[in-house]
């Protein structure tokens, strides 16, 4: 199988773009996603929730940081309003991803309802790869690429959620404890990767410092207030010292 399969005269049609998306996803993207969703499955098991809830979350709410926040806050007994606010703020980074990608997918012959469906597949990894491939694909084949890439990752995430859940139940306590630790260390490293921008350093340090402190002071609102305060402080830093324009997009990942 070569990358040129199914392309007549170098033009990508929809089936070949779909296949290309599947092939691009299988490899590093699937491995990283499966490792992180494996950790999510373990977390849900450790929170004494049913496997069906873990799968429901990955199926419907597919964006790992928000899923972890929802499970954690449910475990802490937070109100549904607070959970909605916290998940909403955590996953707000999806908005710029969709806003930048959708104009490149839309065009004559691309129905709007298809964009609303495909939007569910837009997350950090699929955004990076689709943005990279879009210039070499004709408009009518771009959505097919995203669908191929995104559904492959989505399916792998579901499988990994179930595997992580089963592993946490079957493995010795020391190992399953370590698996629950997978998500915090994974997200921390993703955040540390972004610290090439001064505003991100401020956000990381202020958020990590204020988070536990304000959580102790007020378990309901503490984390939200910490995120708003530290994020606004970081935004002030970014306004004052703008990042170099070399990189665009690339917000913290996790799905």
């Amino acid at each position: 199988m070569t990358a040129g399969d199914g392309t007549a005269g170098g033009r990508w049609d929809r089936p070949s773009a779909l296949t290309l998306g599947v092939r691009d996803a299988i490899g590093a993207p699937v491995v990283v996603l499966m490792a992180s969703f494996f950790g999510f499955g373990s977390l849900v098991r450790a929170s004494e929730l049913d496997l069906s809830l873990a799968l429901f979350s990955t199926l419907t709410g597919w964006a790992l940081p928000g899923q972890v926040v929802a499970v954690e806050m449910a475990a802490a007994g937070a109100s549904l309003l607070l959970i909605g606010l916290a998940v909403g703020l955590t996953n707000a980074r999806l908005l710029p991803l969709v806003v930048t990608l959708v104009p490149r997918l839309a065009g004559p012959g691309v129905a709007r309802w298809k964009l609303f469906l495909a939007a569910h597949l837009i997350a950090v990894t699929s955004w990076i790869f689709t943005m990279r491939r879009v210039p070499s694909l004709p408009v009518e084949a771009r959505l097919a690429y995203l669908v191929g890439f995104g559904t492959t990752l989505w399916g792998a995430s579901l499988a990994a959620t179930a595997l992580g859940y089963a592993a946490a139940a079957a493995l010795p306590p020391s190992v399953s404890l370590a698996l629950v630790f997978l998500n915090p260390i994974y997200f921390l490293l993703l955040l540390v990767e972004e610290t090439t921008r001064p505003s991100r350093v401020v956000a990381l340090l202020a958020g990590a410092g204020l988070g536990p402190a304000l959580h102790l002071a007020n378990p309901d609102w503490g984390l939200l207030v910490a995120g708003l305060a530290a994020g606004t402080l970081a935004y002030g830093v970014e306004r004052r010292w703008p990042p170099p324009p070399a990189r665009t997009g690339g917000e913290p990942a996790g799905e």
Binding site: E48, P65, A86, R93, V180, R200, G211, G227, L228, G231
Partner: peptide, 27 residues
């Protein structure tokens, strides 16, 4: 969009720090 990205990033940092320093459940 820039402010939203900063808050999303900082909130995730706050959640992670709480998971490590003040974990719930088995941790």
């Amino acid at each position: 969009i820039a402010w939203v990205a900063c808050v999303a990033y900082a909130l995730l940092a706050a959640v992670i720090a709480r998971m490590i320093v003040l974990p719930l459940g088995v941790l």
